[in-house]
Write a protein that binds this DNA or RNA. Structure first.
Length: 811
RNA sequence: GGGCCCGUCGUCUAGCGGCUAGGACGCCGCCCUGACGCGGCGGAGGUCCGGGGUUCGAAUCCCCGCGGGCCCA
């Protein structure tokens, strides 16, 4: 077949191959979930197109592609889609910034809302395009689905899951305290909250003990919440206040009395050691009120102003209220002291407004009732590596609240509900169609409950938390909406690849939702990767300014080199550190492979008539053993171990030892038979081919390039066969011994200042187990004579059992 | 503030109760080049995060710190 002419691997060759792959349709693997048996569905993480990928994300997707290709090599059909997660706040914010607009203003009319949505969508299109460009350049053979999570198809499915859960009573509408941004006027998920260090003031306020009249001092940063104070606490270990147990404190200004309790939440060293608990200053208050069964008194409104219950502070913004109450306290001599402190304040991540906790009506998904089920389901999935399963278990056990799933935002899947304003009756559409209640007419002509006319029925304007969408990604991939039975079965062939940072969100929510909807585990396999770190070992964040982008490195070293790094950067599940040096090693490895192939293909492959020497069989057996190990690693969804093993096989054993040893034979200067020469060439081709197949999931470009020259066709369609794993009766251990022996002889020559090709005038004595390769060793190292056994006298013991007796009298 | 995970040459790691802690990348020196400046041989580099304990014996088990990460507050 063809010969390899190039001597060096260059990134430009990859661009040529990409074109061919595109033409040959390599990216479209047709998997019929209903008919095919042996397939794997990959629930590729739909990325959020809010910005460009750094090397960490690029590496993550490259690894997913390696797994997909590896599973194909092992004989599975693999569905590996790629689509974008396009719902959510970040794109809205970016759009507001780019055009200097405010979503809440525009969305006051349906037309304005529509216009805003178009702008967001266009921005997403642009960003998504950039992501697609990167993974294609990386050689990822994903099936690109232009329909992302904001497509009518996906949203119809999300809504169908909601309708189903509503009907089964799994979601409900309720008024509960949530974290709220007064400026954006929306509930916030935990993920949407930032903490900023801020210089604030700690105020020491005098309270009176109801029963004894004693005066105590309480330190607080939120004196404006005095009206909402529900308790005063001290730490149970704090002797100073133990005598207050069971008594009550009278709240200054407002005059109501609250219980004084011992509680772990109080920190003795903070302020005076006495703290007031209000509804609500922060999340700890929330937990406290719930735990103690205290009745909250909500004094802050949705717009961040104080209400009637705040008495003299009514109508003031929170900050103004704080100034006012401080003046009042000071005037009455109740302010004992104030000091400056630096504390962490929870703020809305987008506008940095301090978050308030207030009661609002939202939709909630019941999750507390299903903790045991989720644990059981999680237990039935295979985790790679298994250690990370615990993160999910721990999280599930710690859950304390139902999941608020609605958001007052715009670019998201709408909550598919209409409500009758007359009787509060809830009207749901039929599942299967994407509806927009803020714009679409209700699906009924009059209220089915009270008969109120159509215009008394209003559509819900809120959208879902993005996790509500993304937690059904696997159902989208298996097409649950259209073929629920087929989809449910396909879940048993589904694989989830993701980072460990979102186990508590994406993996948890997916497990919960899939189990509730289908009664099954969402996945058979869960593959958990670590986080990408910069060269100094810090997580890469835009805010830290240490994000490294892949493009310049792809241009300089190529995708194979980049993929090589991402495969060997760390063991599966551990954090991986960026290393340009390793990327460079990847390129050198590709060049090495080119030259091995160049050497091998300079000989015509024999058609029969080959006689294999034991050395050839040993090499083949060694390669076959590696192949089995690599296949096993791939089967465990690992690319780290397989890549290191292949590197060792190809470079250290095959190139440095076997190839060098057979040179005397194939160049015809050692007096071997024709059949034996053919045997060497046969083995060279055999090992080359096997290496290319095995390495093709990791470095598809170089492998495909050579495969096309040697075999014709693409290596991407090749499967690992029984034939590949045959060892020809050879002994892999023999090959290892040969490597050791060569090393020992090289070292000996080196120490004596000899050139490696220099003749050795003497007799080399080999142990019995190396008898079969004696002739090859003799020709390779140019030793005058090789014998087997231990001599009576010798000059050097090169390694245990190997002796060298030099000739006498000649020099 | 809480929970969990992790700390072995500069880096990635092997070892998980018992030989002088092994390998790879990088670095330094020497050498080589009829596939490849690709490599070969040698060298430097580790108090196995620190402290205490268990044990005849600990990188390995236990406890306390310190440092890093993730998540939740």
């Amino acid at each position: 077949m063809g010969r390899i002419e190039i001597t060096r691997w260059r990134p430009e060759y990859e661009l040529e191959l990409l074109k061919r792959w595109e033409e040959e349709g390599l990216y479209r693997e047709v998997v019929d979930l209903a008919a095919d048996e042996s397939y794997v569905v990959i629930d590729t993480p739909p990325p959020y197109p809010s910005g460009a990928w750094g090397v960490a994300q690029a590496a993550h997707y490259a690894q997913i592609d390696m797994v997909a290709r590896a599973l194909r090599l092992l004989g599975y059909k693999v569905l590996a889609p790629f689509y974008a997660d396009r719902n959510g706040l970040p794109a809205e914010v970016a759009t507001e910034k780019a055009f200097g607009i405010v979503a809440h203003e525009m969305a006051k009319t349906p037309e304005g809302r529509e216009a805003f949505l178009r702008l967001v969508s266009e921005l997403l299109d642009k960003n998504e395009e950039a992501l697609v460009r990167v993974w294609k350049r990386l050689g990822c053979a994903f099936d690109y689905w232009p329909d992302g999570t904001d497509s009518p198809r996906y949203r119809a499915m999300t809504q169908a899951t909601f309708i189903e859960m509503w009907k089964r009573g799994l979601v409900y509408r309720d008024v509960k305290p949530v974290q709220w941004c007064p400026r954006c006027r929306t509930s916030l998920a935990e993920a949407e909250i930032d903490f900023v260090k801020e210089v604030g003031r700690l105020y020491y306020v005098k309270f009176r003990v109801l029963e004894t009249g004693e005066e105590v001092t309480i330190a607080t940063t939120r004196p404006e919440l005095l009206a909402a104070c529900g308790a005063v606490i001290y730490n149970p270990r704090d002797d100073r206040y133990r005598h207050l147990e069971g008594k009550h404190a009278v709240v200054p200004v407002y005059g109501h009395s609250v219980p004084i309790l011992a509680h772990e939440m109080a920190r003795p060293e903070y302020g005076t050691g006495l703290a007031m608990m209000c509804s609500y200053g922060d999340v700890r208050d929330l937990v406290f009120f719930k735990e103690q069964g205290l009745k909250p008194r909500v004094i802050v409104e949705k717009d961040g102003t104080m209400n009637r219950l705040a008495g003299p502070l009514e109508g003031l913004k929170v900050e103004e209220a704080r100034r006012r109450i401080v003046e009042m306290l000071r005037g009455e001599g109740l302010l004992v002291n104030e000091e400056e402190i630096v504390h962490e304040v929870p703020v809305c991540w987008r506008c940095k407004t301090p978050v308030e906790i207030i009661h609002v009506e939202e939709y909630f998904l019941r999750q507390l009732d299903f903790k045991d089920d989720v644990l059981r389901v999680a237990d039935s999935m295979e985790f790679y590596p298994v250690e990370h399963r615990e993160k999910l278990d721990i999280w599930v056990k710690s859950l304390a609240m139902d999941w608020p799933i609605s958001r007052t935002r715009y670019y998201g899947t709408e909550v598919p509900i209409w409500t009758c304003t007359k009787c509060n009756h809830v009207i749901l559409p039929a599942p299967g169609k994407y509806v927009r209640p803020w714009r679409d007419p209700p699906p009924v002509d009059s209220c089915p409950s009270c008969g109120a006319p159509r215009d008394a029925i209003v559509g819900e304007s809120r959208v879902f938390d993005t996790w509500f969408d993304s937690s059904v990604s696997v159902l989208y991939v298996v097409n649950w909406l259209e073929r629920p039975e087929v989809a449910a079965r396909a879940l048993s062939r589904a694989l989830r690849p993701q980072g460990y940072d979102i186990i508590r969100t994406w993996l948890y929510y997916t497990t919960l939702r899939t189990w509730l909807l289908t009664g099954r585990p969402p996945f058979r396999w869960v593959r958990i990767t670590g986080m990408g770190l910069d060269e100094k070992g810090r997580a890469m964040h835009k805010s830290l300014g240490n994000v490294i982008y892949p493009e310049p490195y792809l241009e300089k070293y190529g995708a194979d080199a980049f993929r090589f790094w991402s495969a060997v950067a760390s063991r599966l599940g551990s954090d991986y550190r960026w290393s340009e040096a390793t990327v460079r090693s990847g390129l050198l490895f590709a060049t090495k492979i080119v030259n091995i192939a160049r050497f091998v293909t300079s000989f015509e492959e024999p058609r029969g008539g080959a006689s294999l020497r034991p050395l050839d069989r040993a090499m083949i057996a060694y390669a076959a053993r590696t192949a089995r190990e690599v296949a096993e690693g791939y089967g465990k969804l690992d690319v780290y171990e397989p890549t290191l093993k292949l590197y060792h096989l190809i470079w250290d054993v095959f190139a440095s030892n076997y190839v060098e040893m057979v040179k005397p034979r194939v160049y015809g200067r050692a007096g071997f038979s024709e059949a034996e020469v053919a045997g060497a060439v046969h083995a060279l081709y055999r090992v080359l081919r096997l290496s290319l197949k095995l390495l093709s999931p990791i470095m598809p470009f170089i492998c495909d390039y050579i495969w096309r020259a040697v075999e014709g066709g693409t290596v991407a369609r090749e499967r690992l066969t029984e034939d590949d794993l045959r060892d020809e009766g050879g002994d892999p251990g023999l090959m290892e011994r040969v490597v050791e022996l060569n090393s020992a002889i090289w070292k000996w020559k080196k120490e004596r200042g000899m050139r490696l090709g220099e003749r050795v005038e003497g007799v080399l004595y080999l142990p019995e187990e190396l008898r079969d390769v004696a002739e090859d060793v003799k020709r390779f190292h140019r030793v005058r004579e090789v014998a087997v056994g231990k001599p009576e006298a010798w000059d050097f013991e090169l390694m245990p059992g190997v002796y060298l007796a030099l000739d006498r009298g000649t020099g």
